[in-house]
Design a protein around this nucleic acid. Structure first.
Lengths: 245, 245
DNA sequence: CGCAAATTTGAACGTAGTCAACAAGTGTGG
DNA sequence: CCACACTTGTTGACTACGTTCAAATTTGCG
């Protein structure tokens, strides 16, 4: 609990929060659950469960199709809210698995409902963040539908770096993915073999460097150009939010 | 204004609404705007504008990538809320275009904020519907990433039928798409030529029939099997919503 | 009716997938 | 601390799904 509420910290990146709001948010993080790398937090079609805030670590959500292939939908980092969609369904629509050891703060639906009743500003902010994530999803949709394999791999590298950096400002151009090439393939709609070839190609072109599982962005502009990448966390306008309480 | 609030009607499909709530929602539909087929309601990178409720007709949202290719993100039907993401950005992240002549009910951000302050139940319901749409988006993501061309075409046919039917219960197995094969291609990440071949193949296999731009679903089970299709509007649990006002 | 847009079909091509073999890591238990 | 087993990464050869290009045909709108 070092950071003292990593959800309130995240939300205050967007707008200033009142002490009261902060306290309310931090109360959501009273319970804590540690999970090891590889743990499946909940599985597709399980009976729906709690929502949780990611406190530490990295997770991913995915679905498995009839033919056994997997599509990774999203990666989760500290401050992200996970499983909101599970509370509206009787059964989970997706699986959530820990990519690294992680700390989660689970809370139940009624706390969520309470937030809407007592803190309209926070509720609207959560909806706004939801929209950011929706737009990020549509960016990925356009990537899968309309860009080349190389562009998709470049895009995922840029995205992971941006998100890791938001959590830890000290991260520079080198990141350690924590993902296998198979994982990257399942996120980008490619095979592991082809991901390998694309990484090699990006390396040969001097856009990235690799040593083990660490990747260094050597030519960010070049990658962005190839990838149609847009940072969706900038240029926000949250001036319309209702006043805080 | 025949239907007397097609947004309140849609929301009441999910949970019963109080008279007060209904009135509040209907007040969002006081203004009305008619647009002709082909009208661009707002364009990517335009200065952000109003939100609107679709009252009548069909629209689509899309993005155009650097190389000029287009990805259709979503189709919009009566009762759908459009442009929510434009209110959180200074510039629109996507273009919205009318596929058929349509009627829209625009309203501004402050009405939206007011909803959060005065009607927590409605706010939570809007968030829940948002989540349904998010899950629908992830289904499409998995479709683009991990299913064949034929499956994607089958999926879009099933999806359009389901959504048209939700608006007009009298619609049976025959729908008139109102889309060109190019449009279907831009929605499924395929070329128009290949969409044509896939439609023919579905027809040859007896799964669908075609006459002009009308498509008849002849073997729904067969299509669903091929397409990994899940109806995301069923099996909901909204019992956690805060009480109405 | 006339014309532009949309559909249809064929042929050639290319991107990414598949299969297979081997190398390099990584972790575990003796 | 090493040996072994297993996972992950790498590379090559071949295949196939979907694209591209082009031309003919149909549709439907003004």
């Amino acid at each position: 609990m070092a950071s003292g509420g990593c959800f309130s910290e995240r939300l205050s990146d967007f707008v200033p929060l009142s002490a009261n709001e902060r306290a309310t948010l931090d109360r959501l993080q009273e319970r804590e659950r540690q999970v090891r790398r590889g743990t499946i937090v909940f599985r597709e079609n399980d009976r729906a469960s709690d929502i949780f805030i990611v406190e530490k670590g990295m997770l991913m959500s995915y679905v498995v199709l009839d033919d056994g292939s997997r599509q990774i939908l999203r990666f989760l980092f500290p401050g992200d809210l996970a499983g909101v969609s599970t509370i509206i369904y009787r059964n989970c629509p997706e699986t959530i698995e820990a990519v690294t050891d992680a700390t989660l703060c689970p809370f139940d639906r009624s706390s969520f409902a309470g937030l809407f009743e007592q803190h309209p500003r926070l509720a609207a902010l959560i909806l706004a963040i939801n929209q950011i994530e929706r737009v990020a999803l549509t960016d990925r949709l356009a990537g899968l539908g309309r860009t080349s394999a190389k562009a998709r791999v470049a895009a995922i590298l840029l995205d992971l770096r941006a998100r890791m950096r938001r959590v830890d400002k000290t991260i520079g151009d080198t990141i350690s993915l924590g993902l296998t090439q198979e994982d990257i393939g399942d996120a980008t709609g490619l095979t592991a073999v082809h991901v390998n070839r694309m990484l090699r190609q990006l390396e040969d072109e001097g856009l990235i460097a690799r040593e083990g599982s660490r990747v260094t962005i050597r030519d960010e502009a070049g990658l962005v150009r190839g990838a149609d990448y847009t940072d969706r966390y900038s240029n926000l306008d949250l001036s319309w939010l209702p006043p805080g309480r």
